[in-house]
Design a protein around this nucleic acid. Structure first.
Lengths: 340, 340
DNA sequence: CATCATCTCTGCATCGTTGCAAAGCGCACG
DNA sequence: CGTGCGCTTTGCAACGATGCAGAGATGATG
């Protein structure tokens, strides 16, 4: 029951511990005769290396942590999937934690008694923590930031170009002939940088089209959840002059918005076209299916993981700001065709 | 940069390593004078305990692994969220891995060179691996199984009562007056036990209502994904006598099915009522919103974690089969009211 | 035949922490 | 004043693995 150790195997095979280790690792040549004998002992005792001990000796754990606000938000679940896959390609495993966007939890994560030291590095998708704090707390552990916040070059960072993504989404709506385009999801305060970038892109698109931005059409939401999208849409429908299209800052907001529209008998896209961001699977089977700006999550994950591993092995000391690709996926919610 | 150790702190404070350790852990009393001095040294050097070393010494890692088929399947993401939360309450962290339902991956997970030894225990949601194999491979690591497969009492196991859940879902449809009720998601082969249990419940409900089961209405699907639900529904619509209700073995199948129905101009629930299983958030904002049998995921997670920890500390040697609660959540997809 | 290079194999030290037992110290008590 | 008790503090060993340097054995070479 209690796992056997190198010592047990060595005793059984009548060789030194070191020789068993050599057989297990295969790095140092071992004579055929001994190898066979040791291998037999390994099999009989069903030896499994104690990775904790190995890690201590090697100074590496082979584990990274991925910290996201909420794992049950599809975007993060899908991203986590890709991160796990990308990490596996480098023989790394991934510990997952979620902060619920709670700054306290984020801080605790990096604090004195945290488990952070167990990991070779951290992939962090911070919501509430400030750049200063992060800097103060991460002087030990290699960190790569994902998608959120701007930390003006002091951190490794992987994200899509949010301004461009938002501009393209809005331009797509303009291309349909819509002129009264709303935006759902602005976050005009210090930790809402991502949202603000999307607002910037939205404004750019309208201005380039020679339209004036109607601030009434920009509805802020504290988070990016379905029910907040639904609420925001209600507010927009109550306007004297409702919009004819909505750019939602993520797909969940868009799905919430479409929920409100469907209930209100407003046709999508005929009366109001809807576009989201994130490219989550849910949007492919919603009714109507959702047009979205889809970040290349696999690319984000691969880049983030390899950047992090670079920091870990010291080959990437200078913070890099990587822009990951995205593409517009057009579906029914902005298609010319009727929904039903 | 390189983290300071107990030795460094001890040197600086002019005390023994052991005393520093005592201050850090707080378990053994230390005189005020020394504690202050040591604490100062700890702060100055920003000491963080090396958890790998601590784990080696203590023989516990404080980590469990959660292995699910696919993390981007909402049910598993939501379950993972609860598991992480439940584990945190016990000061445990959770490593996440996914197998893609690939038996090879599941086997590898338990194999010789796996990371399994790094964890104190495993929460496993197996898809393809057989009971025998699992038994052969898990003689070392404490394991609790989640929701899938039947392993006739040789493993700790937490799941809802699938037969009852399926029966209740079907009875709900019967209660609406529907009489031609289809089922989507059967898996009539060795690793599809969960699906088979749901088929059993479905049959029970029909038989108790004095109806005969029309095997044509039971559409198998190899997995529980949206597009397979959509395909299955197409098949049902093509029948000479289509159903007036569908029980889908999970919410994704149901959402796929509703997608097909909406496109085909079939009204839900007026023409065909739909019910799913899993209680994922997506179903609350789908159009129409989805009636579902919702397992209490938090309860499943709590039970699974505390059972696992019981196995780990040896206080729960006999395999327990726990039935977690579930409840029927009625929404638009089976409501009397019109959708639009 | 002596010498040296080569190839296996081994023992020791070490990673950073904690368990254990005993040392050191002060104080109360006979 | 000596003994014993309780409290704090310490040194040593150990968790299980690997790096390193060196010991043996073997073969090649002059």
């Amino acid at each position: 029951m209690a796992g056997s150790t190198l010592r047990d195997v060595a005793r059984r095979a009548g060789v030194s511990i070191r020789t068993v280790s050599n057989v297990v690792n295969g790095s140092v040549p071992v004579s055929d005769e001994l190898r066979v004998r040791v291998q037999a002992a390994l099999d009989e005792l069903d030896y499994r290396p104690n990775l904790v001990a190995r890690n201590l000796r090697r100074g590496r754990s082979g584990m990274i942590a991925l910290v996201v606000p909420e794992l049950d938000v599809p975007y993060f679940a899908e991203l986590a999937r890709e991160v796990i896959t990308a990490a596996r390609a480098h023989h790394y495993v991934v510990m997952l934690d979620q902060t619920d966007g709670d700054g306290e939890r984020e801080r605790e994560l990096l604090g004195r008694e945290s488990r952070a030291t167990m990991f070779d590095g951290l992939l962090l998708s911070p919501l509430s923590i400030s750049a200063d704090e992060l800097r103060r707390r991460t002087n030990r552990v290699p960190v790569v930031l994902l998608g959120e916040h701007i930390f003006n070059g002091s951190f490794h960072h992987v994200a899509i170009d949010n301004v461009v993504a938002a501009r393209e989404a809005t331009e797509h709506l303009l291309g349909l002939g819509r002129r009264r385009i709303a935006a759902i999801g602005d976050q005009p305060y210090s930790t809402g940088e991502t949202a603000q970038l999307r607002t910037t892109g939205y404004r750019q698109a309208l201005e380039r089209a020679g339209l004036t931005v109607d601030d009434e059409l920009i509805v802020p939401t504290p988070r990016f959840h379905r029910h907040l999208g639904a609420q925001a849409m209600e507010r927009l429908l109550a306007l004297p002059e409702p919009p004819d299209a909505v750019f939602c800052y993520n797909d969940l907001l868009a799905i919430g918005a479409m929920h409100t529209l469907t209930r209100a008998g407003v046709r999508v896209p005929d009366d109001i076209a809807v576009v989201g961001v994130d490219g989550i699977q849910e949007g492919r089977y919603s009714s109507p299916s959702l047009t979205t700006v889809a970040p290349d999550k696999a690319a984000i994950a691969r880049t983030a993981v390899s950047t992090l591993l670079g920091v870990i092995d010291g080959s990437a000391p200078v913070p890099t700001e990587t822009k990951a690709p995205h593409r517009l996926v057009v579906r029914e919610s902005t298609a010319g065709a009727r929904t039903d």
